[in-house]
């Protein structure tokens, strides 16, 4: 990248390092940091939406809907999350392909399960066999986001379900006494008040979500873990201008520090948010602020 990087072998340590850390491949690891942020930026709101749907259906008075909501919350919580990550990525992929298969090739008679293979007709493949590389990568990332959203949606549903039950019952009864319908009570009274109760759980969930991002690697996305393994491995002078020994330990140390800093910053920001939200609330935290002032 720098102009003095023409002949790396002749450089001294510091300059060598500067050149080494700015090679094309290292740019890939820096962009993959943005993949992590992108994943968080998309997953967090989606998971919240899933969680909201799950929690409100678990509260529903229509029994089957409430069972679905409760089952969604219960199943995802009882099993190791990583198993779900591995499961959903294949399952969702097959589900999409199967739906497209049913629509696009209705006259296909063979079973889609042939021995140890999952076979759909060519035009139902996702992405299409002749699609460019970036489509494959984007599709893989999309599946990963959806998987994260489903798993974390269940956690969020659990938090929101608890928060909805924490809203004082008198508030809801008062609203009903004013003649509001169930729908109005839900949207005008319950939903606006539940956030303060949900925030501690949700911020905990955010921390957990940050710490789950390296699992992207298991879903086949070329993320920071992938690049740290790639770049850290021993390189001989035959294949690269920057030969070095096995540096994977240092790469993962750097990742460790990155995650520690990220969680620390999140912690500080979330504490600030909580301080703002509890301001003036009739809770212990609100009282503490009032007394301090």
């Amino acid at each position: 990248m720098f102009s003095f990087c023409v002949d790396p072998a002749s450089l001294d340590d510091l300059a060598w390092m500067a050149c080494y850390l700015t090679t094309g491949k290292h740019m890939a690891i820096y962009t993959s940091v943005f993949t992590v942020f992108l994943l968080l930026a998309i997953t967090a709101p989606t998971a919240l939406a899933f969680g909201f749907l799950g929690a409100s259906s678990a509260r529903s008075h229509f029994a089957p809907l409430s069972w679905i909501g409760k089952a969604y919350i219960a199943i995802v919580r009882g099993v190791p999350d990583i198993a779900f990550f591995l499961f959903f990525v294949i399952a969702l992929d097959q589900l999409f392909e199967w739906i497209r298969h049913e629509i696009k090739c209705p006259d296909w008679t063979d079973s889609i399960w042939q021995g140890n293979d999952f076979v759909v007709c060519d035009i139902a493949k996702l992405p299409l066999g002749n699609a460019p590389q970036w489509v494959h990568e984007t599709y893989g990332f999309f599946l990963a986001v959806l998987t994260f959203a489903i798993v974390f949606g269940a956690f969020a549903a659990n938090v929101l379900y608890g928060a909805m039950r924490a809203v004082p019952q008198n508030q809801l009864e008062t609203a009903e006494a004013y003649g509001m319908t169930r729908r109005q009570v839900f949207w005008r009274i319950l939903v606006p008040q539940m956030w303060v109760y949900a925030l501690p759980g949700l911020s905990n969930l955010w921390m957990v979500l940050i710490k789950a991002t390296p699992l992207l690697f298991l879903l086949g996305v070329e993320d920071i873990v992938y690049w740290a393994r790639e770049l850290g491995g021993a390189k001989t002078a035959r294949f690269t201008d920057y030969p070095h020994g096995d540096w994977r330990m240092w790469y993962f140390l750097a990742l460790l520090v990155f995650y520690l800093l990220f969680t620390r910053v999140s912690e500080i920001v979330l504490d600030k948010v909580m301080l703002r939200l509890t301001h003036g609330q009739a809770t212990l935290a609100g009282d503490a602020q009032r007394k301090a002032a």
């Binding site: 710490k211 991002t213 393994r229 096995d246 990742l255 460790l256 995650y259």
Partner: peptide, 18 residues
């Protein structure tokens, strides 16, 4: 508590390897 267990595993493995 602040870092992912997954990364801790990786780091420890490569640390022991070196």
């Amino acid at each position: 508590r602040g870092s992912p267990l997954f990364i801790q595993f990786f780091f420890a493995y490569f640390l022991f390897l070196s």
